[in-house]
Nucleic acid binder design. Structure first.
Lengths: 116, 116
DNA sequence: CCAATTGTTCAATAACTTTTGAACTAAGGA
DNA sequence: TCCTTAGTTCAAAAGTTATTGAACAATTGG
């Protein structure tokens, strides 16, 4: 049981930008970035929408190549594909995340904590 | 006769990313960046779509705060709002443009020339 | 095996986006 | 003034995206 991901060279700029051009998905990315290295399951994002809706947004992020989802038991462990994105579009993810931190409200309750 | 533009602090990250997540608009921005400083009128972009369609895409870019359109006679002179975007989202525009140059075909015929 | 947990899929709907052509406005030159 | 050039606006059609609830699948623990 593995989920489909594009490989690095298949990641497309307009698709990545389009996918990031949605407040829910930007908030997901912002939160993933603040917990970088820690794999998160979907329930961490329930502040941002219903279970069904998050499944939809997380699939968009995965299909665009922004996140990776690894199946572990009944969980999907979600991580940012930082190395792949940095290789493909240098500096893009950093500037988007920095801008998102300035621009967007944080995921409820988890705001400043960067380590567990 | 002036057209409406958001001021710098009204420029929103998700809206900018959403607007850039379209191949036509990304090509417009890429071309504007390659001619930075030179104001261009809309007809420069006719390779990318019909007159009506370009009017639509250029309005989206302007309303998002990505471009500025100055009315000069019957022309609209279009420029990138680089300083405003750099102030609001440091590094974002540069990384998007660099990525677009790698990722997208150029505007027909005008490819490499950076000076008139 | 049974129940709980985690997340997906499906179909429906609502809302938005893109694209088009025809009609229009506004300025400039002959 | 009349014609041309430059671009907008409008309404319609087509396509895409987001959101929902109900039903489903897969794994884990009792």
């Amino acid at each position: 049981m593995t989920l489909p991901h594009p490989n690095t060279d298949q990641i497309s700029l307009p698709i990545v930008l389009g996918v990031l051009g949605d407040p829910t998905r930007l908030a997901i990315v912002r939160y993933l970035a603040s917990k970088e290295g820690v794999p998160l399951n979907c329930s961490q994002f329930l502040d941002l929408g219903s279970k069904t809706n998050l499944s939809y947004h997380l699939a968009k992020l995965r299909e665009a190549g922004v996140t990776r989802a690894e199946v572990v038991g009944t969980n999907r462990m979600i991580t940012l594909r930082r190395a792949d994105l940095d290789a493909r579009f240098p500096g893009l993810l950093d500037s988007v995340i920095a801008a998102a931190v300035e621009d967007l409200p944080a995921v409820g309750g988890h705001d400043i904590e960067v380590s567990a």
